[in-house]
Simulated assay, not measured.
Amino acid sequence: MTPPATAAPEAPVRAQQADEFDVDTGTLGGEQKKPWEQLALALFIGIPFLAVLAAVPIAWGGFLGWRDVILAVVFYTVAGHGISIGFHRLFTHKSFKPNRPMKYALAIAGSLAIEGPVIRWVADHRKHHKFSDRDGDPHSPWKYGTSLGALTKGFVHAHVGWLFDTEQTPQRQYAPDLLKDKDIIKVSRMFPLLVTISVLMPAVIGGLWSWSIGGALTAFFWASLVRIALLHHVTWSINSICHTIGDRPFKSRDKSGNVWWLAILSQGESWHNLHHSDPTCARHGVLKGQLDTSARTIWFFEKMGWVSDVRWPVRERLEARRVDADAKTRLKAAA
């Protein structure tokens, strides 16, 4: 006797459920920002920024100690390199291959910067590279034109305004590889917990270190609020400042430039012209005197055996991408 055919419709239902599940996998919310996400974003931008404005009088009043400085520098360095090495050079551009513990460590460290879940961050940045300084770029300062007024408006958009766009980058289109990585999905879903740790851990350490409520409060102010604001605005400056001004020694199809005075604070990310000329290169500061602490850290990880297949710059490839390479070719042809 043949079984009844009532079970046949289950397959498309399951496929549909799986498809719906994949849309939101690895991040908070869907492809549209909800009002509560906009509010949370505004709070995490506004409150730390107010702390920066209050930093000078608070420091002048004696509420800044060496413990606060140490904690702020340590948390800034860990989270900053988590963004530059992990979110950017590894997960976005595949500049090297990490072992599993290093992959976890970099994903967690980058999440401590509170710039969004790793998969969401990567999707946005890959879309930026696809449409860099053209229609479709999520954060180009040239979005509204080249006049002073248009560029001013575009600069604000590139620096912070784009974060409030309701439409979000489709993760399944721009980060399908990460949506298949169970480790990265796990870390991306841990984002709210990691935000809590990033905000509160400095206060906990400062309180235990000084064994006082005052030590906890000053650590929270400097190593949480001020540190978060500084790292946010340095990161966003790569979108705004480094796509508006700077030297451009390498050929690229956009307006990415090198801004030397941001190099230390950005962990080498402000050597932005070479990065857009050769995005998968693990080192951005390739010319003499260009400090790139992210590249140096990757070098250390490689020596320790924690990462492999690092895409270091190749001299011939760099020379071919130099702006003056075309001039040299023309001179040789003329001779």
Rank of each mutant, 00 (worst) to 15 (best):
M1F: 11
T2M: 07
P3N: 15
R14D: 12
A15G: 07
A15D: 12
Q17H: 13
Q17C: 02
E20Q: 12
E20P: 00
F21M: 02
D24Q: 09
G26E: 07
G26T: 06
G26S: 05
E37K: 07
L43W: 12
I45Y: 09
I45M: 07
P48L: 06
F49M: 10
L50V: 11
L50P: 01
L50F: 08
L53M: 13
V56D: 01
G62L: 05
L64F: 13
L64V: 01
G65I: 02
W66H: 04
W66E: 07
R67F: 04
R67S: 09
V69T: 12
I70S: 04
L71R: 12
Y76C: 11
V78K: 05
H81N: 14
G82H: 04
F87C: 04
R89F: 03
F91E: 06
T92K: 06
H93D: 09
R100F: 06
M102D: 04
M102F: 04
A105V: 01
A107G: 15
G110Q: 12
L112M: 14
A113P: 01
E115W: 00
V122R: 13
R126P: 05
H128M: 05
H129K: 08
F131G: 14
R134F: 08
D135S: 11
D137Y: 08
K143F: 03
G145E: 05
T146D: 15
G149D: 12
A150W: 01
A150H: 13
L151P: 00
L151V: 04
T152A: 14
K153I: 00
V156E: 03
V160M: 13
T166L: 03
P170R: 08
Y174Q: 04
L179V: 00
K180S: 11
K182S: 10
V187M: 10
V187T: 13
S188T: 07
S188D: 05
V195Y: 03
T196K: 14
S198V: 00
L200Y: 11
V204A: 15
I205F: 08
L208Q: 07
L208V: 12
W211M: 14
I213V: 15
I213Y: 07
G215E: 08
A229Q: 05
H233P: 01
W236M: 05
W236Q: 13
I238T: 02
C242T: 04
H243D: 13
H243N: 14
T244G: 03
P249Q: 13
S252F: 03
G257R: 13
L262F: 05
A263R: 14
S266W: 03
S266K: 12
G268Y: 06
G268D: 10
N273Y: 02
N273P: 05
H276P: 06
G285P: 08
G285Q: 07
V286R: 06
L287F: 09
G289D: 08
Q290F: 02
L291S: 09
T297A: 10
W299I: 02
W299M: 12
F300N: 03
K303W: 06
K303T: 02
R311F: 00
R317Y: 08
L318M: 15
R321P: 00
R321D: 03
R321E: 14
K328F: 09
T329E: 14
T329L: 14
K332M: 15
